[in-house]
Nucleic acid binder design. Structure first.
Lengths: 161, 161
DNA sequence: TATTGTTATACTCTATAACTATA
DNA sequence: TATAGTTATAGAGTATAACAATA
């Protein structure tokens, strides 16, 4: 299978949520939700910068990792992890399949479902992306010391539950 | 000005990023970026639930607060705060103007620019939304103690810088 | 020349709803 | 009846590019 000519990757969000000097942010400065969003956008932009030229966005990276760690997972379960509808999981899986990164195999126990599997190429992709993303994440977290980092992770997980 | 018939609000994201039992999340569990995204989606959904029936999304709430605290701000500056292009700030301002929440007045010093101002109605809206959003934010943060909350806020702001 | 606002247009992501094949 | 996957369609949000008025 010849790899498709890849359209240049364009993230939806190109611009940071700027801290404009001299502006009054009012109640926003007290809200966890606002701080969360700003930090998340900054991380997203850093992800994009660190993986420039690759078409793997954060949700796509998540999908690759999940399929890699859970071979045979169904499209519906993948959709649940990503927080998207079944139809979206379809489109996503098609996208990976067209690029030879994921293969669908009939689930042995349920003939309605597909089991998703990384191809050899998908394995290589997830390994190389993981290296880049872990390095980026550590770099971003470098403003925190180890203890702060662990604490942040734990507080975020509490909040997400 | 008669208030427009408001289309029912439908957030882009309806579903949480589920923690699916028995699944291996691999490297994702070590990534600040992933935890950040999950916490942010959870907060977004809580925002939606707490303001059900209102068409004010998080970015719109941000816009109202910023215009309220900085009367006369330009569309371009507002776009920078939100991290969107000028054209998007236009569409957004049109949306508020059509609902009588924001008024455009010519900037006295620069005849190219508009100064944005809350209308009386906009003021009421931002006050009522602020009450709801602050209450929601506190509720969400209730899993943390006061010290943890302050720490999280400070760590997030470090990360967003 | 550079910037503000504007308009037209296109693209990405995701939802809903209806359908099929299996369970 | 319920669920997995599929298809078609629609909508929200935002980008780019070109333009007019003003700086």
């Amino acid at each position: 299978m010849t790899p498709k000519p890849t359209a240049p990757y364009r993230p939806r969000t190109l611009a940071p949520m700027q801290r404009v000097a001299g502006l009054d942010y009012g109640v926003l400065d007290e809200l966890l939700g606002y701080a969360l969003r700003r930090a998340q956008v900054a991380m997203f932009l850093a992800f994009h910068a660190a993986t420039r030229g690759q078409d793997i966005t954060p949700p796509r990276f998540t999908a690759l990792v999940i399929v890699g760690a859970n071979p045979g997972i169904s499209q519906t379960a993948l959709g649940n992890v990503l927080g998207i509808a079944r139809s979206g999981a379809m489109v996503l899986t098609d996208w990976f399949q067209a690029r030879g990164l994921i293969a669908r195999r009939r689930a042995p126990d349920d003939r309605r479902a597909w089991g998703l599997h990384l191809t050899a190429r998908g394995e290589r992709m997830v390994r190389s992306m993981t290296r880049k993303v872990v390095a980026l994440d550590r770099r971003r977290a470098a403003v925190l010391n180890g203890e702060e980092r662990r604490q942040l992770l734990s507080l975020l997980n509490k909040l997400a539950a």
